[in-house]
Design a protein around this nucleic acid. Sequence first.
DNA 1: TGATCTTACGACCGATCGTGCTATTTTGAG
DNA 2: CTCAAAATAGCACGATCGGTCGTAAGATCA
Lengths: 201, 201
Amino acid sequence: MESLGGAVSKGETTRQSILDQALDLSSEVGLEGLTLGVLAQRVGMSKSGLYAHFASKELLQRDVLDAAAARFVDVVLVPALKQPRGCRASRCSSPAGCAGAPRSSPGLPFVAAAADFDDRPGLVRDSLISHLKDMLGAVSRAARIAVEEGHFRADLDTDQFAYEVWGQLVAYQHYRRLLGDPETQARAQRAFRGLIEASRT
Amino acid sequence: MESLGGAVSKGETTRQSILDQALDLSSEVGLEGLTLGVLAQRVGMSKSGLYAHFASKELLQRDVLDAAAARFVDVVLVPALKQPRGCRASRCSSPAGCAGAPRSSPGLPFVAAAADFDDRPGLVRDSLISHLKDMLGAVSRAARIAVEEGHFRADLDTDQFAYEVWGQLVAYQHYRRLLGDPETQARAQRAFRGLIEASRT
DNA sequence: TGATCTTACGACCGATCGTGCTATTTTGAG
DNA sequence: CTCAAAATAGCACGATCGGTCGTAAGATCA
């Protein structure tokens, strides 16, 4: 048994490192492109040894998605909520904030997964929808606060605002990954600024 | 030889019907999910018989993509260009117009393919980028005409306009396919109206 | 230390993938 | 009708996929 604290079993630590690697890998090839063989190779263990940590590939994918959501909350949402209340909405919903550094953007596996699983029913899709609704709710709530504090228009449809924010995130990822256009970052920021401007009082 | 007209060889006919079926199928499972076996089954011929019409799967995918682009031009762009000049920009770039009826929207395979191949170099990706740039150029040009005719602001960045239009198309497809929210259509239209409004004089 | 439970490995399975090769059927021009 | 050419089917291959199983190595605790 573990000593009721930081100590964790060996299995749990490797399981966590598997999940970490899977998160990175799925940022490159997508959740759907995730393969037990190459993941095992990257982690440095045998396929079956890796597989023993998960009941099925679907469960593995779901866990990876949960890990991605957790990372997103930690990296994007929590820092945003530490901002002064008035700035929250724009901070936590900026594509530049979500997409962050070109490398290993926290929102990326999420967007990629959304594309892969939008028509593939199952555990992963359900989990994805659930997380997405949570995130949209968070953005909408932040916008509502901004409305109450007078930074945003009183008649702003905050759900619509969240919709458009997510849309810009998705569009930004598409553009950047497909075209590799360095101008994309500037375009995304301009578009986002336009959205904020249109929501202002 | 053919009689210099409508007559086409049998091979070309079946090849075209294969492409049609492939277009429908890829709207469901994506270009990446396209499989020779199930495609052959759907067309009603053997896998090898079908395969004989294409040098490789990659070439097949490229041809499907070209067909999708052609259909998009026919169904969306050409009708839009027959509108009075002032309306073109909004007509040809409306997500509702591009996405059209919930079933068999012409832009869908394009968006799905963009998600699948944004990080998979090769023929398909190259073709995809080429077509995308064409479409963006068309939208940008339409916007420019609207500017010249005084319907849009004189200082409008038409490339930025095209970027945001494509973004809305992508976002709409994501939302609709993932959440299945009937409200999505209304949200997309509202977002698009906002974009047009912001571009007006 | 010795016993026990956890963790990891290698071999293997059936299915499916893309892709060639060869035979057979179908088409269409002379 | 004849017959070469085109079109299609049959078959098999190597690779890779998710997944299973028996077992060896390693950790944990009495």
